[in-house]
Design a protein around this nucleic acid. Structure first.
Lengths: 337, 337
DNA sequence: CTTGGCACTCGGGATCAGCGAGTGCCAGAG
DNA sequence: CTCTGGCACTCGCTGATCCCGAGTGCCAAG
């Protein structure tokens, strides 16, 4: 159905439209890209492409613009991955050099991605469930309140205050801490749930209510709640693309953690790199945007996802290149620390 | 120079312009507000107000809009504080009820403020320097790396990994932790600097290089760096106001922590409530916006600032009311936890 | 000082024509 | 069957023109 030239035409249309932001016509196509055919031929091809739903014209007798389906075909079969320039590689390295802690890594990554792609960057915190517990700390704050601090091998630190049903004294805290560390140290957080189930037997009956409170906090908040942490950056890049009326919606969506999780999460489980174009997007407010996301991790294990979000008319090859490269670097950093 | 009626006219102009977003003329003024004079009289007053620089006309023979100076006079002398509705009070209470930890308080506060005022909310994390150290925790991560966790009485928890010059063993960590807690517990972070200076004497000579590394991290990063933490929310509210070309600048500014600190910080030290209008703003990119900010704290001590940012044409009485109320609630929450 | 009257200004919306980029179609050539 | 040049047609955009009306400033009278 689509011979080579038609594909080339589609590719050219996407490229031109991405760079000029204007509907592209048959004539401008032939001289920009040196297709050795006449505009009329191109027009015929374009008619076919339109019939198949890959391109559309905003108004009769205007140029064509790619549809979501057109972009889809483009990223799937027509576009390579644009390698980063030397300057960009250097930028990545300097940007991520000398990071302190996990927060730092994530924040810098977001800025880096946003700057590199001139789009909105989205970075999810490394998942806790696959990390190892390195240490559990319990600090008494008041008679019925303790602070729970959980440190993982990926450098992530989670804290939560826990309200206790009964007053607790210093000794009981010490004891509980010892139990927690004995049982949880070195375990994957994913296993914690099963381990915690056996825990109550290890503490004295009088302390059980308090212990149970602590355990439930570990389960509920640390695992479930903190899984949902996505940080966004480069929102100002949205203004260059003229969303006009949709901008409000997009900004709103970007402020909802839940939405962002859905955005990134929905596409997990498949192959590492996901490109979600326009209406393919699970989030209603982001139907006019595309997402390029990839899973990152420390070599052996996938930790979380990061990516960029932009108008459907975005430079996919560059975005894919940047996202991939950044993900790889971040993985290295996390593995090395 | 400005008699009562002229002030009333200015007030009316501000109110009308804020609500209609359109330049307001003499005629529409007289029937909206029941001023018992003719439009001609109002025109004379307006001419004076314009001469004095309180209002301006965008084009000849159009209505008038307030200038920054006009807004200034309005908030200083003409506007009261609009009390919150019962529903809004309830919203505040439910929003801030059952918070877990400090992060939670700050995040919810931002959302609350943004929702309440329909503007951009800006909340600074409570200052560390005035808090008391409640506990210092030191966790060995690797031979030459420990995690430092610092817990304050305002519920804030700060963490940083520290690279050590020499390998450290479990015992040395325990010892160092004991020293740190003995010396820092219960002190204000502001005093920590002087205390730390005496610390090296308390540790064995062989451990001093490592101890020094830890101390310097406490000083540098915990105090200085973390002072600069401002969180922003409700950016989507910027799209309702038609900044047109300035939106990009504004969004950019809002992503820079440093800029935000300057924005909030510059006005500290004066009276609690600060209203910074348009060009009064220290940040270049925010010259078309106004800030309503207030210091919040736990009764006796000021901790940090929070506020809202919006177009100069914003509803100041409502904004001031909301910001004040939220600040008071947040103070209570922090004091009670 | 206030008021009604009046001439004047000027931005914005509506209308309209011309331009030009772009299209679809067709007939002819390879 | 494909490509090509030609041709008529469409239609959005730009600029010019015009008109309306809201709003102003000024002035003379109350």
């Amino acid at each position: 159905m689509l011979d080579d030239r038609k594909l080339a035409v589609l590719r050219a249309i996407v490229q031109d439209y991405v760079s000029t932001m204007e509907p592209v016509g048959s004539k401008s196509l032939v001289d920009r890209h040196h297709l050795d055919v006449s505009p009329a031929t191109i027009r015929n091809d374009m008619a076919v492409l339109e019939e198949e739903g890959y391109i559309a014209q905003p108004h009769t007798s205007a140029g064509r613009i790619p549809t979501d389906k057109g972009y889809r075909l483009f990223v799937d079969r027509l576009s390579g991955v644009k390698p980063l320039s030397a300057a960009e590689r250097r930028a990545i390295e300097t940007f991520l050099a000398g990071v302190y802690d996990l927060d730092d890594v994530v924040m810098r990554t977001v800025r880096l991605l946003a700057q590199l792609t001139r789009q909105v960057a989205v970075v999810q915190y490394p998942s806790l469930t696959r990390s190892l517990v390195r240490h559990v700390e319990l600090v008494p704050l008041a008679a019925t309140r303790v602070l729970l601090v959980l440190i993982t091998d990926t450098g992530r630190v989670e804290q939560r205050t826990v309200e206790l049903p009964d007053p607790i004294d210093e000794d009981a805290v010490t004891q509980l801490r010892a139990v927690l560390n004995a049982c949880l140290d070195g375990r994957r957080l994913a296993e914690v749930a099963s381990v915690v189930a056996e825990l109550p037997e290890r503490v004295q009956p009088s302390d059980r209510p308090n212990a149970a409170a602590v355990f439930s906090v570990i389960l509920e908040s640390l695992i479930e709640r903190n899984e949902e942490k996505v940080v966004v950056g480069g929102a100002s890049n949205l203004t260059t693309a003229d969303f006009s009326q949709g901008l409000h919606e997009v900004l709103e969506s970007l402020e909802e953690q839940v939405v962002l999780m859905r955005l990134l999460g929905e596409s997990a489980g498949q192959s590492s790199l996901t490109v979600r174009i326009g209406a393919e997007n699970p989030v209603a407010g982001l139907r006019s945007t595309s997402l390029v996301a990839v899973t990152y991790g420390t070599g052996d294990q996938a930790l979380a996802r990061l990516g960029v979000l932009g108008p459907t008319r975005m430079d996919y090859p560059t975005a894919i290149g940047a996202v991939r490269a950044v993900a790889r670097y971040v993985g290295q950093i996390l593995a090395g620390s």
